Simulated assay, not measured.
Amino acid sequence: MQKNRSEDHRASGASEGFSLSHKEQGEVEQKRPPRVAVLHETIRLEGEEELERGIAALGWSALAAGLSMGFSMLARGLLHRYLGGAPTGFGFLIESLGYPFGFLVVILARQQLFTENTMTAVLPLMTHPSLHTLVSLLRLWSVVFAGNLIGTGLFAYGILHMRLFDQATQAALLGIGTEMMGNSPLQMFTKGIVAGWLIATMVWLLPAAEHAKITVIVLTTYLIALGGFTHIIVGSVEVLYLVFAHGLSLGAFAWHFALPTLAGNIVGGSCIFALISHAQVRSDEAEER
């Protein structure tokens, strides 16, 4: 049905506009953006593959991602330190450019990041709901989140205790965590919704981005930094650094930051963006029948 519609559309387009050869018509089709259903299916199949991966493979990949995400905090902290501290205006815009670094490493290296899985791994469950898929999703989330969290903790602890940086840089890193904890638990949750939504948007855009993937990653995550939105993995590095420096209790990390932010990221990534995107594809299919 859809194929016939496309052929009819090409035929009508050729009669109403310029006369195109068969080869030129093929070039037009290649330059058109992919249909929403194509993006949905691409991400769903990727999610299916992730759900089938073994625990060991998931765990090591998630650990690597947690360690890599630490570079978002480190890059931002170093920029903050060498911009003279507490930058405002243009200085803040430059400092925030450090935030996308960890995401670039994780996504281009295809490491397992929990907030990506709130999109990719949920689509198989929405497409074919079953107890088996739900259990597989919960297994994936548990392993990846635990691996990410361990990786962030190791990075924060190592950066603090290896004495790699001077006092000014350490103060800048502490300041990032202190600024994060200035949010109330409700703000952690609501800002986490926006961050989860943006990460899901990024995941949705990447299959169509082709050679612009780096641009999509940088722009999306840069907006998270500019808005001060809360991301459970990057934020864990920032706040755990504060915990290991004895500036915050582990309980405050869990109850004030981690749980509200985790819930917000899941709501934004799965309950809003993934659900709406899936509903859009379902509606298109219903119209084609």
Rank of each mutant, 00 (worst) to 15 (best):
Q167Y: 11
Y99G: 09
N265L: 01
L51P: 01
L113K: 06
G227M: 12
A200M: 05
A57Y: 11
F92E: 14
L20M: 10
C271P: 00
V105A: 07
L125S: 03
L45S: 01
K31V: 15
F155W: 05
I150G: 06
C271F: 08
A65R: 02
L275R: 08
F244Y: 12
A65G: 10
I193A: 06
S249K: 01
S68R: 00
I150A: 13
A146M: 11
L58R: 08
V122Y: 01
R44A: 14
T133H: 14
G269Y: 00
A56T: 15
S19T: 09
T220E: 02
L160S: 13
P33K: 03
W255I: 15
L173M: 11
A258L: 15
S236I: 06
V218M: 12
M188Y: 04
S61A: 10
E29L: 13
C271V: 14
R35P: 15
A172C: 07
S130N: 08
K31W: 07
Q111M: 06
F189K: 02
A62H: 09
S184D: 12
T120G: 09
M162P: 01
V105C: 04
E48D: 12
G196K: 01
L174D: 02
L154H: 02
V237W: 03
P260F: 08
M162T: 09
Y222D: 03
N265Q: 09
A245V: 12
V36G: 08
K31C: 15
A279V: 13
E29T: 12
A171R: 10
R139N: 03
L39H: 00
M181Y: 02
S283E: 07
A208I: 06
G228F: 05
L223H: 05
Q111D: 03
L131E: 09
L123A: 04
L140D: 09
W197M: 10
A11D: 14
I214S: 08
H246Y: 14
E24V: 08
